[in-house]
C-alpha cells in the first residue's frame, strides 16, 4: 500500500468493526485484510493492547469442542473510537484541502 497504517488507524479500524458486532480474531483479521494490506500477525498486539487499556473485553464461546475468544468493545472503547474518528476526519479534511487546493492551482 502506498500509505502507512499506523497504530492509531489500526485501533480505529478494529474498534469501528467491533462497534458493529463482537467477533473473534480470525474473522477480524480476514475482514481487515480485505481492506488494508496487513499481515496475519498484525492484529494480535493491537487487540492485546486495546484489551489491556480497557477498550476491549473478551469472552470465550465454545464452538466444535474448543473455544472461540470473542472481542467486544467497552464503553471506554466507544469513547476512544469516537475520539479517533474525529481526529481522522479532521486530518483527512486538511489533507484533502491541501491536495485539492493544489489541484485547483494547476
Amino acid at each position: 500500500m502506498l500509505f502507512q497504517v499506523g497504530a492509531p488507524l489500526l485501533d480505529a479500524c478494529v474498534l469501528s468493526f467491533l462497534k458493529r458486532e463482537d467477533t473473534y480474531g480470525y474473522v477480524l483479521t480476514q475482514a481487515l485484510k480485505e481492506k488494508l494490506e496487513i499481515s496475519e500477525s498484525t492484529l494480535y498486539p493491537v487487540l492485546r493492547r486495546l484489551q489491556k487499556e480497557g477498550c476491549l473485553s473478551t469472552y470465550d464461546q465454545p464452538w466444535q469442542g474448543r473455544n472461540r475468544r470473542y472481542y467486544s468493545i467497552t464503553g471506554k472503547g466507544v469513547h476512544y473510537a469516537e475520539h479517533l474518528k474525529q481526529a481522522w476526519t479532521d486530518y483527512t479534511n486538511r489533507i484533502n484541502g491541501l491536495i485539492q487546493g493544489g489541484e485547483s492551482c494547476e
Binding site: Y24, G25, Y26, V27, T29, E40, Y44, L47, R48, R66, N67, R68, R69
Partner: peptide, 11 residues
C-alpha cells in the same frame, strides 16, 4: 498469545 494463535490456525 499461544491461545490466540492456536485458535487462529484452527479457524
Amino acid at each position: 498469545a499461544i491461545s490466540y494463535y492456536s485458535e487462529y490456525l484452527e479457524e
